[in-house]
Simulated scan of single mutants.
Amino acid sequence: MTKESFMIRDVPQKDRPRERMTQHGPESLSNHELLAIIIQTGTKNESVLQLANRLLNHFDGLRLLQTASFEEMTSIKGIGKAKAVQIMAAVELGRRISNLKYDDRYVIRSPEDGANYIMNDMRFLSQEHFVCLYLNTKNQVIHKQTIFIGSLNASIVHPREVVRP
């Protein structure tokens, strides 16, 4: 059996991603195995594991996959509308979970607190974003708003754009 011809049915039952996740938990799986569970099926000529691996290779891993557009995903052979929507929904759920705050409102006591508050959203952006955090009198975040998206390394913002909201 060549590598090109292996299908998920050729993998022993106990070694398949779903079964391993059930037995050993999600941390026992690689990124492409987790992605394979999300997209569920491969193509006629490619197993779901091979498709997931090719998808990750195309986007150079999870970092670029998280920002991939619907059109970018569906341009990949084997990723149709349904699979692209499933992947985008999973990425969005992960983003929302990572942004959950357990306190009622996040308190900003230092510039580092402000950076920590927005770091998950801004970590992998490819352009400058001018983001304002609006605080109440107790320095609790009441609103976050992107005021301007600039170029690769600059954002030009007028003070009235910050004060208006």
Rank of each mutant, 00 (worst) to 15 (best):
M1N: 14
F6I: 11
F6E: 15
M7D: 00
M7Q: 08
I8S: 12
D10T: 11
V11M: 14
V11N: 03
P12W: 02
Q13G: 13
P17K: 09
R18K: 13
E19I: 13
Q23M: 09
Q23E: 15
Q23N: 15
H24V: 14
P26I: 10
L29V: 04
S30F: 00
N31R: 07
H32A: 06
H32M: 03
L34C: 09
L34M: 12
A36F: 13
I38P: 11
I39A: 05
I39P: 00
I39M: 02
Q40T: 02
T41M: 12
G42E: 12
T43F: 06
N45T: 01
N45D: 12
E46C: 00
E46W: 05
V48E: 04
V48A: 12
Q50W: 08
L51R: 01
A52Q: 09
R54Q: 13
R54T: 02
N57S: 04
H58S: 09
H58L: 05
F59G: 03
L62R: 02
R63H: 10
L65R: 06
L65M: 08
L65K: 01
L65E: 09
Q66C: 01
T67H: 09
S69V: 07
F70Q: 06
E71R: 07
T74V: 00
S75I: 03
G80L: 00
G80K: 03
K81P: 06
K81C: 07
A82Y: 15
K83G: 11
A84E: 06
V85A: 10
V85R: 11
Q86R: 10
Q86G: 01
A89G: 13
V91C: 02
V91R: 10
R95T: 03
S98C: 02
S98V: 10
N99Q: 01
N99E: 00
Y102W: 03
R105Y: 04
Y106I: 04
V107E: 05
V107T: 09
S110A: 00
P111Q: 06
E112D: 05
D113C: 01
D113I: 00
G114C: 08
G114A: 11
A115W: 04
A115T: 00
Y117P: 06
Y117L: 03
N120V: 15
M122T: 13
F124L: 14
L125G: 15
Q127M: 05
Q127G: 12
Q127S: 02
F130Y: 14
L135K: 08
L135E: 01
L135F: 02
N136I: 14
K138M: 00
N139W: 11
V141S: 09
K144P: 13
Q145F: 14
Q145L: 12
I147L: 13
F148Y: 14
I149S: 03
G150W: 07
S151G: 15
L152A: 10
N153C: 09
N153V: 11
A154Q: 14
S155W: 05
V157L: 05
P159T: 08
R160V: 14
E161M: 07
V162Y: 11
R164Y: 14
P165R: 12
